[in-house]
Simulated scan of single mutants.
Amino acid sequence: MSEKLLERVRELARLWGPSGREQRVHDALKAQIAPFVDEVRTDGFGNLLAVRKGREGGRRVLLSAHMDTPGAIALNVTDKGLIYLAPVGGLKVHHAVGQRVVWGSGALGVLQYEHVEEPKDLSFRKLFCDIGAATKEEALERVSLGDMCTLAGTVEAWGDLVVGPGLDNRLGCAVLLEVAERLGSGPHTVIFAFTAQGEVAPRGAAVAAFGAEPDVAVLVDSAVSGDQPGVRQVATRLGGGPALRLKDSGFMAHHGLAAQIAAAAEAGGIPLQRCVSPTGSEGWTVTPVGPGVPTAVIDIPVRYPGTGGEMADLRDARAAAELLLHFLGLPLNLA
Results as ranks from 00 to 15, higher is better:
F251T: 13
V25A: 13
H66E: 02
A96I: 05
M311I: 15
P331M: 01
G159P: 13
L246D: 10
V289H: 02
H94L: 02
N76T: 13
A262R: 05
A217C: 15
A65R: 12
P291W: 04
G89F: 07
C173V: 10
L15I: 15
K53P: 07
S2N: 15
T295R: 09
A65L: 13
R60W: 11
E156H: 01
K4M: 14
N169T: 09
E22C: 14
L219V: 13
P87K: 07
G109Y: 09
R274H: 12
S249Y: 05
V293C: 08
D227L: 08
Y113I: 12
L272A: 02
E118A: 14
V286S: 04
L108Y: 09
L140E: 15
K120Q: 15
V61P: 00
G230F: 13
Q197F: 02
P214L: 04
V175Q: 08
A174S: 15
D130I: 04
G20N: 05
E39R: 14
A180D: 03
R24Q: 14
L328W: 10
G20L: 01
G204D: 12
V51D: 01
E39W: 11
L330E: 14
A320G: 03
K120A: 15
H326V: 04
E138R: 07
W103F: 14
D79Q: 14
E213K: 09
V37Y: 09
G104P: 06
T150Y: 01
Q197E: 06
E11Q: 10
L15H: 03
